[in-house]
Design a protein around this nucleic acid. Structure first.
Length: 388
DNA sequence: TCCTATT
């Protein structure tokens, strides 16, 4: 089982995500896990221990498709689809490769799919790349289950666990309800002691439902307290919560003003429906924007505050602007500037917002925002005729 | 009281 360290290492050196300065060693270990190994503990991150107790080379449900199609989990946040393809392409010919990204923000969700032409290459990729350490992550490579609605929302959050309970014991407790895909017990970062909370992902949602019915409020054997078992939060919910709390803290709460009914409804729809996370990479504060605005005289045409959005992708459309700015308040107009001949976006656009405070928060939040593989520049549109 | 696994 020749692990092609040279191939992989050269790929890693050429990739931007391999050049993180804090990672002393890109490849710190490559523990290839074969089918019969009982010791399948994989560590991911500093404060948790995860277990992949399904052997990676074991076929899920004997589906023909899954002999070539792999799911790759725990990818570094900044790894691109091209880099994923490059890494897995070192094994054999790839039929298709997809890094899964948030539909709206374009951020990597940390997993992807690699479909090989030949089943033997898929197996080789599992044997070679499963357990590979990339930056702070230990990637997991396994056969993808056939895609189906029944396998979604099958992740459980478990709390109130005895601190002495091991992952194996946790799995033993839950395995009576179905096939466990992953399990995890969160541990204290410093002491490594269990925090009494964990996760169980089942193969199918119905199994998770049965586990809730059977175990929620029950005491595990030997335990003195009952455990809580519920569906885990999902990432999109978390994003909406971040948005909600962001809005809650935004200045427009203090000065509600006469917001149009339509604008409020639009904002609510967005909050409820969008899988959208506000990540503020921008060092610009609201005050920073305000002072900048003071210098550059933001354009206010009477109908609202005009915002300049720069570095949009060629295929950007109005929709993405509505989706980005809508949650921050009343948006009355958006426009993507396109080339007359090609109809492709020329890299910038404009958004008009009714209220100054909402516009300022939107700018502070979205300037420096990474949309796909681009970093946006967002500012009040300046009125050049009045500039020095 | 929350690790991120279904295109």
């Amino acid at each position: 089982m020749a692990v092609r360290l040279c191939d992989v290492a050269s790929l890693l050196r050429s990739g931007s995500w391999a050049a993180e300065p804090w990672t002393g060693q890109v490849i710190t270990a490559m523990e290839t896990q074969l089918s019969n190994g009982p010791s399948c503990t994989t560590s991911n991150g500093l404060n948790s221990v995860s277990n992949n107790c399904t052997s990676p080379v074991e076929m899920p449900n004997g589906n023909e498709d899954s002999k070539t199609n792999l799911i790759v989990n725990y990818l570094p946040q900044n790894m691109t689809q091209e880099e994923l393809k490059s890494l897995f392409g070192s094994i054999g010919e790839i039929e298709s490769c997809k890094l899964v990204r948030d539909k709206i923000t374009g951020q990597s969700l940390g997993y992807g799919f690699v479909n090989y032409v030949e089943p033997k290459d898929a197996e080789k990729a599992i044997n070679t790349l499963n357990g590979l350490r990339l930056q702070t992550k230990t990637i997991k490579v396994s056969y993808a289950r056939p895609s189906s609605a029944s396998i979604r929302d099958a992740n459980l959050y478990v709390s109130g666990l005895p601190k002495t309970m091991t992952q194996k014991e946790l799995e033993q407790l839950f395995s009576q309800y179905g096939r466990i895909i992953t399990s995890r017990i969160l541990v204290d970062q410093v002491t490594g002691v269990s925090r009494g909370v964990g996760f169980i992902r089942f193969d199918r949602r119905v199994e998770a439902e049965e586990a809730i019915k059977g175990l929620n409020g029950q005491k595990p054997p030997g335990a003195t307290e009952p455990i809580t078992v519920k569906f885990a939060n999902n990432p999109s919910q978390k994003s909406s919560q971040a948005l909600l709390s962001h809005l809650y803290q935004s200045p427009n709460r203090r000065y509600p003003g006469p917001l149009a009914q339509q604008a409020q409804r639009f904002r609510l729809d967005n909050l409820l429906n969008m899988a959208y996370g506000v990540k503020r990479f921008s060092p610009v504060t609201i005050d920073g924007v305000t002072s900048l605005a003071g210098i550059n005289l933001p354009a206010h045409a009477g109908t609202g505050w005009c915002i300049f959005v720069y570095n949009l992708a060629p295929d950007a459309d109005e929709n993405v602007l509505w989706q980005m700015f809508g949650p921050f308040g009343a948006v009355t107009n958006v426009k993507v500037i396109r080339d007359f001949n090609t109809n492709k976006c020329k890299g910038f656009g404009f958004v008009t917002m009714t209220n100054y405070d909402e516009a300022a928060v939107a700018i502070a939040s979205l300037n420096g925002y990474r949309l796909g593989d681009r970093v946006l520049q967002v500012s009040f549109k300046t009125n050049k005729t009045h500039k020095a």
